[in-house]
Design a protein around this nucleic acid. Structure first.
Length: 360
DNA sequence: GATGCGTGGAC
DNA sequence: TGTCCAAGCAT
């Protein structure tokens, strides 16, 4: 324990330089307050949930739409979960949306809308882990909480020249974070450090010439600062073959079914399919359509998930007005914006095909 | 503690 | 075009 505490040297860390850089270069973001004001906890909460493993540019339009539709924690708590999932469609990691609604309901009801202000309390909320708890406590409430995301970890690891895998040094890094955290501007500090990580000390290019921490940085003295942090090798992505069935009726509606509440694309509406997702089956429906005419679209497509690649063949089935779907399937209007990207792609192929056929 | 969980942009 | 990877969390 003591060995770890002393292993990394941050004595040259210049928090004032980071904050000075931030004063010059801070990005205006919809959820960000202008220092020394603090952003609303609701905005911080919403943005941090969306920002988990997601880049700022992707989050901005979703964040704006969410606060327009659900301007405060009570509005979000009162929202229909399916409306929230549809608004989240395309952002990915859909468990975040479901957890967000749960957390909002806890805060709105059990806490009468008052956010917990410490990381120890915040982390009890669903979807809020060590990073997000620390981020909300620090950014919204200026608490001296540990905020370690991928950016800050990378900046600190490079600064101290730590050439051990992240998972081995995470705890000592948290201690080091608190040791470099300044007494004032505790809300700005983690945001400043994250901005440095996102814009200066990036994974593939450490722009040391413009870095406010360059003076004391160990990685800068190496031939390739980008060699840090050391990363574990990744397993190869398996490929799964699958089929997606776009089934339409004469009323320009499309057949969809609710996916299981957890797991891949959990809780989202999806098209009948087979092969690419072991935990989802449409066997009964497909048996009922065994004799239907299926048109396989010429192209197919590929979709990359986190841990596998799906090579998809797309089939179009047009059923008659009298055909009744089995239980758990329903006709939906064509709203690709409400669907996960996998199904948007499948629809895109059918739409192109139908336009070609219809226009010919 | 390893694994499952999306997506789109940068290069 | 393929590879990498981004403000992580739950189990």
């Amino acid at each position: 324990m003591t060995v770890q505490e002393n292993r990394f040297d941050f004595t040259a860390f210049d928090a004032d330089a980071v904050l000075g850089w931030y004063d010059q270069h801070a990005r205006e973001l919809p959820w960000r307050a202008r220092s020394p004001e603090l952003a609303s906890a609701y905005h911080v909460f919403l943005s941090e949930l969306m920002l988990q493993q997601t880049v700022v540019a992707t989050v901005i339009p979703y964040f704006n739409e969410f606060i327009r539709r659900w301007p405060d924690i009570h509005a979000l708590a009162a929202a229909d979960e399916d409306d929230v999932l549809r608004a989240w469609a395309g952002l990915g990691y859909y468990a975040r949306a479901r957890n967000m609604v749960k957390a909002a309901r806890e805060i709105s009801t059990a806490r009468e809308g008052r956010f917990p202000q410490t990381a120890d309390e915040l982390i009890k909320l669903p979807g809020v882990g060590p990073y997000t708890a620390g981020a909300i406590a620090a950014i919204a409430f200026a608490k001296p909480a540990v905020v370690l995301d991928g950016n800050i970890e990378r900046v600190l690891i490079r600064f101290a020249g730590i050439d051990q895998p992240k998972k081995l040094v995470k705890n000592s890094l948290a201690e080091r974070y608190l040791s470099v955290l300044p007494e004032t501007r505790r809300s700005d500090f983690p945001q400043a450090l994250m901005d440095v990580g996102a814009g200066v000390c990036t994974p593939k290019q450490a722009k040391c010439d413009i870095c406010p921490l360059a003076a004391g940085c160990a990685a800068r003295r190496r031939p390739n600062p980008e060699d840090l942090p050391v990363k574990p090798e990744k397993p190869a992505k398996p490929v799964r073959q699958g089929k997606i069935y776009v089934i339409t009726n004469p009323f320009n509606q499309i057949l969809m079914t609710r996916r299981a509440p957890t797991g891949l694309l959990g809780g989202m509406m999806g098209f009948p399919s087979s092969g690419w997702d072991k935990s989802h089956h449409d066997q009964h429906l497909l048996a009922a359509l065994a004799d239907a005419r299926k048109i396989r679209l010429p192209q197919g497509f590929s979709h990359i998930f986190t841990h596998f690649r799906a090579d998809i063949d797309v089939f179009h089935i047009q059923v008659s007005a009298s055909w009744q779907p089995p239980e758990n399937y329903s006709w939906a209007e064509v709203n690709p914006d409400d669907w996960p990207t996998l199904f948007r792609k499948a629809w895109q192929q059918v739409e192109t095909f139908l336009r070609y056929v219809g226009g010919a």
